[in-house]
Computed example of a mutant assay.
Amino acid sequence: MAKTMFTPAGPIQLHRQDLPPDLSFGSVVAVDTETMGLDPRRDRLCLVQLSSGNGTAHLVQIIPGGGPSPNLVRLMEDPGVVKLFHFARFDVAALFQGIGATVAPVRCTKIASKLVRTYTDRHGLKDLCRDLLGVEISKQQQTSDWGAPELTPEQCAYAASDVLHLHALWARLEALLVREGRLALAEDCYRFLPARGKLDLMGYEEPDIFSH
């Protein structure tokens, strides 16, 4: 049964290990992950955050030895549901390593920003929310212990904020991709992301197999 809490970020439902089988996120779901560190080969998946863009976030706490997450895997692999990330390269690798999901189809706001906002080097989620939406989000809990058995309200609010704005960001960035004639190029990048994540898990971040 989900634990519901109300935070400044909005209503949050916290689930353990898996999503309820009857929960729908529509045709586009915003997704983020929290892990024990920045190496998905070493650092385990601790939390998966999701939102349909309706102001509510669902957090799935992945428990070591807690068993499979079939409903979450099914959603991540559903070809009829777009998974919207910021820096999808890391998240798709973490989800494959953590729950065995090959995530597709994928969109990534960081790739979109780098393709069209070439006038700046500020492509972090906090930067995009401020520059494109006029929203300030806090990154104070980013390096906290996401493997703790019980997450604090502050951790949950931070985790939720990482998905609650992605739909609005994507709408702005998709319009810029269309305006600059780079949407098709972005789509090609997104199709490659599941393979890019698997290459990272195999250690092919360095050497990059695409380099000379």
Rank of each mutant, 00 (worst) to 15 (best):
H212C: 00
P8N: 11
L201Y: 08
G100S: 08
Q142F: 07
D121I: 11
G203K: 05
I12C: 01
H165D: 07
R117A: 04
D208E: 06
P207D: 12
H123L: 05
D188H: 03
A94L: 06
R117Y: 07
D91I: 04
I209K: 01
K198Y: 03
P79V: 09
A2S: 12
L183M: 05
S24T: 13
G80F: 13
I62W: 10
L133H: 00
G98W: 14
A184D: 15
C189M: 12
P40F: 05
T152M: 03
V103N: 10
P64I: 03
H212F: 09
L115E: 10
V135L: 02
C108S: 06
E180I: 02
L72E: 07
I12A: 05
F87S: 14
Q13E: 14
L50T: 01
S52K: 12
R42H: 08
Q141C: 11
L183I: 01
E174L: 00
R122E: 08
L173F: 00
P11L: 10
P70G: 09
W146M: 07
L185Q: 10
L132D: 04
R172S: 01
I209A: 14
Q61E: 10
P20L: 03
K198M: 13
L164P: 02
H123E: 03
F96L: 14
E34I: 06
P8I: 09
H58R: 04
I137Y: 03
A148H: 07
H86K: 07
T7A: 10
V73C: 14
H167M: 05
A9F: 00
A168S: 05
G203C: 02
F210G: 05
G80L: 09
Q142Y: 01
L38E: 01
V92H: 10
L115T: 10
C46A: 14
E174P: 06
P8M: 11
G100N: 08
L128V: 13
L19N: 03
E136P: 00
A157D: 15
P40V: 00
L183G: 04
G147W: 05
I63E: 15
L185E: 14
K83E: 05
D39R: 11
P11T: 06
L169I: 03
G134M: 07
P70K: 05
R196H: 09
S69L: 02
V81Y: 08
G26T: 05
D127W: 04
M1L: 06
A94C: 15
